[in-house]
Computed example of a mutant assay.
Amino acid sequence: MTSLYKRKRLTVITIVYWFLLSYIVTALIFWFLSLMKQNDQMAEYRLLQLKKDDPDYLTKVAEIEAEQKGKVFQYIGEGSTFMLLILVGAVFVYRATRKQIRLNDQQQNFMMAITHELKTPIAIVKLNLETIQKRKLDEEQEKKLVVKAIGETNRLNDLCTNILLASQIDAGSYRLQKEALNLNELVYESAQYFKSGFARLQLEALPEEAVYIKGDPLLLQLALNNLIDNAIKYSGKEKMVLVQLSGEKTDAIIKVKDQGEGITNSEKARVFEKFYRKGSENTRNTKGTGLGLYLTKKIIKDHGGSIWVEDNAPSGCIFVVKLRTMTA
């Protein structure tokens, strides 16, 4: 219902905008034609005032006609300039307005998503603790509930970290704390972090020789966690998620492969936009806030690396991260 209202509102705004623009352009054309008509009338009136027996008659006629042509060029130049400025301004305002409306919609979707993302782990942790408190459970059952509660707490912590980091990065207040990092250890730790809650996460054999880069351990760990978490969410519980690390001569390549529905070519660039999520909050089944991939790209870019999306056969997608090694 809300999305329908938004579409109607945008349609009304667009119609009103183009109506006003058409009115302004029509008024400008009318102004130009009026000036041209007035110019012709003034030239004709001045010619009628001349006396044909005047020795300078032809000279004065030529001056009047030259002045008339000069006015024509002046009106054309001024009119064209005004028209160009109006059209350029109109396009700028129209694009800025649509961008702002889209951003407002994304921010509203973000607020809806963040509310859900915050309430869900809190509710699960509360339920698990109440179950332990009220019921007599054996040690194995209690352990499962505690592990699940810890997992949801970690998820809540990651969410808060994403939100805080997004705010700091946008404000330019976060400073990278770069140090020598063993990517083998970083990738292994991220894989182990998720493996307890997602058994179908598979980590390929790491390179025998450690791959070292210079970077911020907190940010790079968060970026990799975001990619793995994203792959798990879109793959579903029954499909495999694969994490790979390879070291080339000058670059380290990290690949996170999922077997979900995949990403269309038109969306591959947009998935890294802030707040962007496929579909609407009313129809979307996957969890998320639209910050994870946005932050990941910012982090990788700040480390001088690059990230992109490829298709995975037969289904799903592959997020590829390239970072410069310390030997480069």
Rank of each mutant, 00 (worst) to 15 (best):
A43Q: 04
V146I: 07
E78Q: 09
E139C: 13
Q107M: 15
A62F: 04
F32L: 13
Q106T: 03
S22G: 08
Y94D: 03
S34F: 07
L118W: 07
L159S: 00
L145E: 00
L47H: 05
Q141E: 03
D54P: 05
E67W: 10
E117M: 00
L84Y: 08
Q74I: 10
G70S: 08
A113W: 10
W31L: 04
Y75W: 04
R102M: 09
Q141N: 03
D138G: 00
L159K: 00
I29K: 06
Y45H: 13
W18P: 06
T97D: 10
W31Q: 04
T115A: 07
G151E: 01
N109A: 13
D158N: 01
M111E: 01
M112L: 14
E65G: 01
A123C: 06
L85V: 10
D40W: 14
N109L: 11
D54Q: 05
H116Y: 13
A27T: 14
N157D: 10
V16E: 07
G89D: 10
L58R: 06
Y75M: 03
A90C: 01
R95N: 05
E78R: 11
I15A: 13
N104V: 13
L118Y: 04
Y94E: 01
M112F: 12
I122A: 06
K126R: 04
K71V: 05
I76C: 09
R95M: 05
T120M: 08
K51W: 11
I24E: 08
K52L: 13
K136H: 03
K99L: 10
Q108R: 15
Y17K: 09
K51G: 15
V25W: 14
L47F: 08
F30H: 14
E130L: 04
I132A: 01
A90M: 02
L85K: 08
T115H: 09
K60G: 04
T115M: 12
R98I: 12
A90K: 00
R95I: 07
I15Y: 13
M111F: 00
D105C: 06
A66D: 15
N128K: 01
Q108T: 11
K99E: 09
I76R: 07
R135T: 08
E78W: 13
D53H: 10
T81P: 14
L118C: 04
A27G: 12
M36D: 11
R135F: 07
E78L: 12
L137I: 00
V91M: 09
V125T: 07
V93S: 13
